[in-house]
Simulated assay, not measured.
Amino acid sequence: MSALHWDITHLRQHLQYAIQLEYWTVPFYMCAMYSIKDPTSDAFKLLQSIAHQEMLHMQLACNVANAFDTEIDEVQVFATPAYVGTQVPHLQFTDGELNRDPFDPSLSYRPYSAELGPLDEPRINAMCLIEYPEIDSGEPPQLKENVSEYSSIGQFYQAVLFGAGQLADQIRGNLNQVDHFSRFYQGFPDQTITLDGRPGYAQVTRLVNAITDQGEGVRRSNEVPPDYRNTADGFNNSQDHFDKFNLIKSLTQRPECYSGVANPPPGSEGARAQQILIEQFKRFRADLVSEFNGHHSPNFGPNMASLGGAFLNCWKNGALPRLA
C-alpha cells in the first residue's frame, strides 16, 4: 500500500490505535489527579478538566471508527492498558526523520515516565510530550505504514484525516454512535456521524478537529476555538491540554500529593484498595465495549464515578494504583 493511497484496513487500524491512545490517557491522568490531596487546587482542577475531555476524545474517536465500520472490542481496542517505562502507545518522541519539529521535544521534557504514579516531574513531562502540538506547516501529513512511527498525536491525526478523506465514500452515518457529552458544549452539540459519504466526512473532520484543537494536535493558535470549549463545568476553557500541563509544570509550588507502594502487604488496606480498583476497571472496560458496540450500558456513569473513587482509595491507603 502506498503511503499516499490508503486502503480501509490501514485506516481502520489507525482508528483502533487512536481509540487506544485516548483510552490509555484516561487512567494515566486520573491516577495523577487523584494523588493530589487538595481537590480545590488549580493543578487538580486543570487535570480534571483534561481527564473529562479525554473521555470526550475517546467517544469522538470511537464514533469516527464506527462510521468506518471498525471493530471495537475488548481484545484489540479496550484491553487493560500497560504503563511501562517511557512507552506511550503508538508514539515516538524522537528527533530526525520521524519528527517534523525543529528539535526533539523530549529534550525539553525530561525525565519522563509512562508509569502510573503521582503528579510529579516525570509524569508532568510525559503529559506535556503526549499533548505536544504538531506545528501547522501547510505541508501534506507524514503518512506511516507503521502506526507506531508518529512523533506526535497531531501528526497522527493529520494522517487519519488524510486517509479518511480518501475513503470518505465508505462512511456510514448513525452506526453505533454515542453521545454522552454534548450537553457540556453549547457550541459543539453535534458529536456524532449521522451522514454517509462525503457529507459524513465533514462531520468526521469536525470531530477530529475537536480532539486536536482541545489539546492534541496542530498548533493553529494558542487558544481552543470557542466551539470546542466546555460551557458547563470546565476550567481554563480557552487553554488546550499542552498549555494546561505546562501551567502545572511552571507552578512555583505544586500541590502536596499522596505516595504509595507498588506491592502493599497481602491483606492490608492498600492491597484491598488495589483489588477494588482492578475490579472497578474491569467493569469500566466492559461498559466501554458495550457502549461503542450499540448496547446501552445503564451503569456507565456510576461506574465512571466509582473508578475515580477507587483511584483515590488506593492513594489514601498508601498503595500505588494498579489496573491489573
Rank of each mutant, 00 (worst) to 15 (best):
F284P: 07
P298L: 01
D233H: 00
Q177M: 08
D240M: 02
K244S: 02
N222T: 12
D243G: 13
Q177D: 04
N237M: 06
P226D: 13
F281D: 04
F188N: 09
N174P: 04
Y201N: 02
R198N: 09
R283F: 08
A210S: 08
Q186L: 11
N263D: 15
T194C: 06
H296V: 11
R198E: 14
F188K: 08
H296P: 10
G187Y: 00
F242R: 03
L251D: 07
Y228F: 15
S268K: 06
N222Q: 13
D227P: 09
E256D: 10
I278S: 06
F188T: 07
L207Q: 02
E256S: 09
V261R: 07
P189Y: 04
R183T: 14
N293K: 01
G215F: 07
Q239M: 14
V224K: 03
L288F: 02
E223T: 15
D233W: 01
I193E: 02
E223N: 15
R172K: 14
P226T: 13
D240C: 05
V261K: 06
P264Q: 01
A210H: 05
R285C: 05
T192E: 03
H241S: 01
K249I: 00
G200F: 13
V204K: 00
I276N: 10
N236R: 11
C257T: 09
Q280T: 12
N236S: 09
R206K: 12
G187N: 00
N176C: 08
R198C: 07
N174A: 06
N174H: 07
Y228H: 11
Q203I: 07
P226Q: 13
V178P: 01
A202M: 14
E291V: 14
V208L: 05
Y185C: 01
G173D: 05
A286F: 14
G267Y: 01
G217C: 12
G294P: 01
P255K: 01
H241W: 01
G270L: 10
L277W: 09
R254V: 05
Q214S: 13
S297R: 06
P266C: 02
Q191E: 07
H295I: 06
I193N: 02
G294A: 02
D287Q: 03
E291Y: 11
R206Y: 07
R220Y: 15
N230T: 03
I248G: 03
S182Q: 06
D213A: 15
N209F: 11
S259P: 02
N230E: 06
